[in-house]
């Protein structure tokens, strides 16, 4: 079912080409990953973690959010059970990502799914899902994911190490607006992918919900808003279908 809209004339990319295509698709995101990675290295040490713990935590969680929140909680002497629970709740958004990918990865072998899951972060997911839906990514999908994830992962860890070695010599990057490029890319995806009024309704519903739920802890507002947005979008689709049937009658 994933191959129904495959363009016929296109020669499938080899695994190597697909790896490079994945890596290339992530290059724009390096503009944010490099400064944020360096900032993470600085922040880890200044939160009182050892060098090994700083790098180890970054490598283990592979998520900027979980890493930054983790540093803050460890520095604040938070109970460890609470830290682990927080990490789990922060990962709920990822549960949505991997669930959405399910129909597209049926032919990917189990052992590759481990790597695919480990490397699944916001940027990789949104770029990949768009290509999968358009039918642009049909062969050697796991290599595309590997290319995309590994470029960001290696860059992030190198930058963490750089941040650690530079330490306090790095100026405070907060307040320089370095978080905006990622936001701009997400907005560009939203605007370019705005196919119809049902998607617009889902976006508005999610936006309103997340703003109303901003006081919820642990980013739970994001998960709640995602659910509300998806329900509104799906409801609009069903309403539209029912109406078309009535008119046809």
């Amino acid at each position: 079912m994933t191959t129904t809209n495959t363009p016929q004339a296109v020669t499938p990319l080899t695994p190597g080409q697909q790896y490079l295509a994945g890596a290339r698709s992530m290059v724009p995101f390096l503009a944010s990953a490099i400064p944020m990675g360096i900032a993470g290295g600085v922040l880890g040490l200044s939160s009182g973690l050892s060098g090994w713990a700083t790098l180890g935590l970054a490598m283990a969680v592979n998520s900027g959010t979980a890493q930054f929140v983790g540093f803050a909680l460890i520095a604040g002497g938070t109970d460890w059970a609470a830290i682990i629970l927080t990490t789990l709740i922060l990962g709920l958004r990822m549960l949505l990502y991997s669930t959405i990918l399910i129909p597209y990865i049926k032919e990917v072998p189990q052992r590759w799914r481990v790597l695919l899951g480990f490397g699944l972060i916001d940027e990789v997911f949104f770029v990949a899902i768009e290509r999968l839906r358009k039918g642009e990514l049909t062969h050697n999908k796991h290599m595309f994911f590997l290319g995309a994830s590994s470029l960001l992962y290696v860059t992030w860890m190198l930058c963490t190490a750089i941040g650690m070695s530079l330490g306090s010599a790095v100026p405070d990057v907060r307040g320089l607006g370095l978080d905006f490029p990622v936001t701009a890319m997400f907005i560009a995806m939203l605007a370019i992918g705005l196919a119809n009024w049902r998607v617009a309704a889902a976006i508005c519903a999610a936006g309103v919900t997340v703003m109303l739920a901003r006081d919820l802890p642990y980013n739970l507002g994001v998960v709640l808003a995602a659910v509300v947005g998806a329900v509104v979008g799906a409801a609009c689709e069903y309403a539209a279908k029912t109406r078309t049937k009535e008119i046809a009658r």
Partner: peptide
């Protein structure tokens, strides 16, 4: 509809 909703959130 979940990806656009997450992006919006």
């Amino acid at each position: 509809y979940t990806p656009p909703a997450v992006l919006a959130a």
